[in-house]
Computed example of a mutant assay.
Amino acid sequence: MQITAIETVVVSLPFTMGGPYSSFAGQVWDHLDILLVRVETEDGLVGWGEAFGHVAIPATRAAIDSVLAPLLLGRDATDIEGLWRRIPHAVHLLGRNGPFVYGFSGIEIALWDLAGKRAGQPLHRLLGGRDPGPMPAYASLLNYGDPELVARNCAEAAARGYRSLKLHETTVEAVRAAARAAPGAEIMLDVNCAWSPVEARAMARALAGEGLRWLEEPVWPPEDTTGLASLREIGIPLSAGENVAGLHGFRRLIEAGAIDIAQPSVTKIGGVAEMVRTIHLCQAAGIEVAPHSPYFGPGLIATMQIAAALVEKPLIEILWLDMEANPFDPWVRAEGGMVRLPPGPGLGCDPDPEVLARYGRGAPNRQELKA
């Protein structure tokens, strides 16, 4: 079944986050920008994907529009494994991590959406799983830099039913504020590669008595597997993986003895099939899997579908903020600290065209197969 069109669409959604907006790359972050990928086949069937992301969207979109889409037009959309071998290989000189991998991830997710729709089956069934019913989620708070705001948002998240909370802070005081505000909730800490190995070991020792469920990406740079492994003896479970380039990047983490929890990210790793291979690798090594998924559309929904099929005790990351609207509502929101799978085939749902039209940023970029 030939791919006849690939279209990139950016949706920009206003949100509130329980505190002042932060800046990233010189921009105030007050809108969620989603890079959606729409793939159409010769029979008129449409699949949707999501490619990473945030301020990297212009680069990822350019990679899709200028290079990846022309390579994929006319190819067989059902040959997902073959396309995984050919397309990333064709562009490997342009980078094994970054926009070209992110762009292929978005397209590949859309191909799985198409495969499920064509088979009349949801993605979790294609992967050999079943719908587990509501799955627990954790609230992934944004960075506040203020223990009082941390406490306020943790208390609200706990009141909304979350039993697991992740902070994006770098202080012991923030962790303690969260624990006081949400007694009984498990607390995770993601510091986004804030420290050198020496600093990370000192901070891990300071945090060792705080009962953290995990400490996420404590070491800069993230590929310093030896530096990360040096923290294991301190006793806090270590998690990492959102910045890892595919299966072999996770193999290096495992061989270094650097992680207790693996966090593959479907919109960054190369898509669904590479995510599945990585999960199997980690499970064979006795490593827990907690997918990275602070996404807002097909990336989040694909993660939920994969976790439902393959992860024994799924725990789904939901970014802690309130969106003005989302084209994939209600499936991208947690209720009572739980998420549920949409009921349709493929990913399970399509975006609301009215929300796409209202919040679209600029015109879609469409590449079509020439006759």
Rank of each mutant, 00 (worst) to 15 (best):
P99G: 10
M188T: 11
E81F: 09
A273C: 03
E242F: 06
V311R: 00
L72H: 07
H31Q: 15
N97A: 11
D260M: 02
D30K: 04
D131A: 13
F24S: 15
G44I: 04
P221I: 00
M1T: 03
E210P: 02
T226N: 04
D352N: 01
Q283G: 10
P134M: 08
V244Q: 11
P218Y: 05
H89F: 15
P298T: 05
E169Y: 07
D30F: 07
P134Q: 13
P197Q: 03
F250A: 06
V276E: 10
D329S: 15
A137P: 14
G103A: 14
G344A: 04
S293Q: 04
T170Y: 04
R176L: 14
A309V: 11
H124N: 05
W320L: 02
A177Y: 11
A262M: 05
K166E: 10
A357F: 08
K166W: 11
E42K: 11
P134S: 09
Q367T: 12
L45S: 15
L189R: 07
A208D: 00
Q283A: 13
G299M: 08
M1A: 09
C193V: 08
A334G: 01
R160M: 07
R358K: 12
A245W: 10
G103T: 05
D350L: 12
M323N: 06
Q263C: 08
A159D: 08
A177I: 09
E288Y: 07
V355G: 13
A258T: 06
P345S: 03
A290H: 13
S164R: 15
V37Q: 09
R160N: 13
S230C: 03
E288G: 04
T171G: 09
L111Y: 05
G184S: 06
Y21S: 00
I318W: 05
T78H: 12
L149H: 12
W29L: 14
S164M: 08
S293F: 06
G95S: 10
P88F: 02
T303F: 13
G106W: 12
G297T: 04
E169T: 06
R358N: 02
A309Y: 10
W320V: 01
A158L: 01
L94S: 06
L68H: 04
R366H: 03
G337P: 02
G129M: 10
G257R: 01
E288A: 15
L247N: 09
A371P: 15
W195K: 00
P294F: 01
L123M: 11
L319K: 11
E324A: 15
G297C: 09
V150P: 01
L83S: 10
G344Y: 04
D113G: 01
L167T: 07
P147Y: 13
P14R: 02
A151F: 07
A115W: 07
Q263W: 09
L281M: 05
L13I: 02
A174H: 12
P291K: 02
A25L: 14
P218M: 01
A139S: 11
Q263K: 12
G120Q: 05
E324H: 07
D76G: 00
A308P: 05
S196P: 06
W220Y: 13
A119D: 08
I306E: 05
E7L: 08
A77R: 02
G106N: 09
R96S: 05
E81R: 15
R118Y: 00
R75W: 03
L247Y: 15
G336A: 03
I279D: 02
